[in-house]
Write a protein that binds this DNA or RNA. Sequence first.
RNA 1: UGGGGCGUCGUCAAGCGGUAAGACACAGGAAUUUGGAUCCUGCAUUCGGAGGUUCGAAUCCUCCCGCCCCAGCCA
Length: 565
Amino acid sequence: MDESNSSPLSDFIRDIIDEDMKTGKHQGRVATRFPPEPNGYPHIGHAKSVCLNFGIAAQYGGTCNLRLDDTDPSGESMEYVESIIRDVKWLGFDWQDRLYYASDYYDKLHRFAVQLIRMGKAYVCDLGVDEIREYRGTLTQPGRESPWRNRSVEENLSLFERMRAGEFDEGTRVLRAKIDMNSPNVTMRDPIMYRIKKVNHYRTGDSWCIYPMYDFAHCLSDSLEGITHSICTLEFENNRPLYDWFLEALNVIPRPQQIEFARLNLSFTVLSKRKLIELVGKGVVGGWDDPQMPTLSGMRRRGYTPEAIRDFCERIGVSKNDSLIDMALLENCVREDLNEKAPRVMAVLRPLRVVIDNYPEGRVEQFDCPYHPKNTEMGSRIVPFSRVLYIEQDDFMENPPKKFYRLAPGREVRLRYGYYIKCVGVAKNPDTGEVLEVRCTYDPETQSGFAPDGRKVDATIHWVSAAHSLPAEVRLYDRLFRVADPLGGGADFTEYLNPQSLEVLGTCRVEPSLAEAMPENRFQFERLGYFIVDQVDSRRGNRVFNRTVTLRDSWAKIAEKGAKR
RNA sequence: UGGGGCGUCGUCAAGCGGUAAGACACAGGAAUUUGGAUCCUGCAUUCGGAGGUUCGAAUCCUCCCGCCCCAGCCA
């Protein structure tokens, strides 16, 4: 990919930064951060944020931190931290030594909280969960002040210390910011800063039983790290006044600026962590790294390249519009990348036996076939040819429709890098009518791919020598959902799962050169699509290939139209 | 019927008062030892709607309509 001549990226966030650079707002500094909560595996939506944050830092000569925003120990774990680290690295980004955890700031955050109490801007509230909700009011009705709102500083200090000491049960007390119960913005109605959770934290263990809330922790973490532009998604727009409130109240320096952009939505899949957890939990998919998942680990296993994902993230742009990106764009990005990189190879997914009647029994020829039609530097491999071959079932039709121009009785086609063959007979199961074998003759003069007499052939099909080919399992992946917007259909999203999202083919045959294929090697199976050797299940004795994406298939479109008629 | 956002081609998205970029998708065609890749061509007289300001508006003003977010001791 040649990115050297592409114009620098531009969007409303970069416009803001350009302006800030001009006015010297942050002393000309740009510092961003990618702040995932380690409670799930990162997905393609996170990739958008990763590319944005790291991309901006790189573009402006700034830095981007990786910060694990672990303020709620329930649901967070080291496994998730590891997946995040692994996947962001895999995507191609480097935070150097700036790996941070919100949990590393617990002491400092605690001190900030005490400071707010001292200033009379925070108080311990004894209301229960339901009462707090009730006192908060509704979207159209203002809230009421808590009866505990005006405790003395001393009492608040002592109560907060006792909260920390574990003297109170979960849900019995919280620390709240004293802001405005009448605010039309519900977020500002005395938001909770700390809650009691007697839960073991995957990093701090049992040293805390009170944990800071996102709104309190995030802005201060940003300030502590010297973040200049705190980029987050649209749903936090309502929280911005609160983000600013804490920074202002504590008068901290530096003062980061929150900017919100629209999160990614992708057609035919879901990108909500909650929904993905559900798919994993229910066993709908095999795990977070199932190739059907839009997680980075799933996409990696599916065969997506980091380059393709980054390219995609650039192409979709950054705005504040709620959008649903067409999965076709993502698919286009991988195809474009893999078209350049993937060596071509032949594999037959649904084998149909072909016997070449006039080819000598026992004879074997070795064809030297290039790995790439354009890029000769990729070299070539030897493909053996013999009397009995396998071709794709789809490439033969006994009664072909008008636009089908592959093999059929009496028809001649070219075997890729091989001879012209002509169908002279069909062997069928007398009971079912199923085609068991096709009989052909070959023209020995056509090994170059052309006939000396100049006669043309309509199609070129792929093949594999029956005796020399290797068995393989191929997993055909398709879109996870049948509908573009599984969340917008009215029914539960799982109702829209695509039953054909995964099809496992156990009797495939691949050319012998693939004996050398290593896990995560990618190939184009000619005329079929791009495939990758599965990183977890593939063995020498049991090769497993995952289909990343099909090739563009204009025949499929024609066939589909024909079927609809 | 509170507040905060957003509405430009099927899907994204430029545009920032001077007369609608680009990408994907789609449709044709050329060429082709992958019905692939490649290459051409076409694809918004119109910017959610209605008024207004202006010589001139997607861009400014007014009103209306639609969609999204917020009432977790989640982030």
